[in-house]
Amino acid sequence: MGSSGVFSAEMPDEPSQVIVPLDADTAERLLSARLDPDDAPPGYAEVARLLQAAAAPADQIELTGQAAALNAFRTTHPGPTSPPLARPRPAPTPPRPRVPPPGPGAARTDRRAALAGREISG
């Protein structure tokens, strides 16, 4: 029963709005939220308003996660993928001075000592 004491089934039906078949162009304009509700065919003015609301520009609350997103970008980004343009070439490396080879068996001796140490301790 309705609040006015009348069963809803007894209430007179509101005249239902005629919903005309949509042509492809009008459907496309609705779906791209470009159809002005005043220009919508019968039955589609509210759909046009609804779809325009759905496609409305960002609400500030939808952008509140920006700081977290930038932080995640900082930690996730794999790094630059290409070098900056006009990067100066590094100076050519001067030739290494020839170092006289160590005394006979020096490296081998060190290596043996290390291996020996491992052998002793292990």
Partner: peptide, 26 residues
């Protein structure tokens, strides 16, 4: 699917007085 959806929305919005009021985007 899009066509059916638009028609269905039109039916819903014409049947539901609660969402039939003036609707505006932001």
């Amino acid at each position: 699917l899009a066509h059916r959806a638009l028609r269905r929305l039109a039916q819903q919005l014409s049947e539901e007085p609660r969402v039939r009021g003036p609707v505006r985007g932001r």
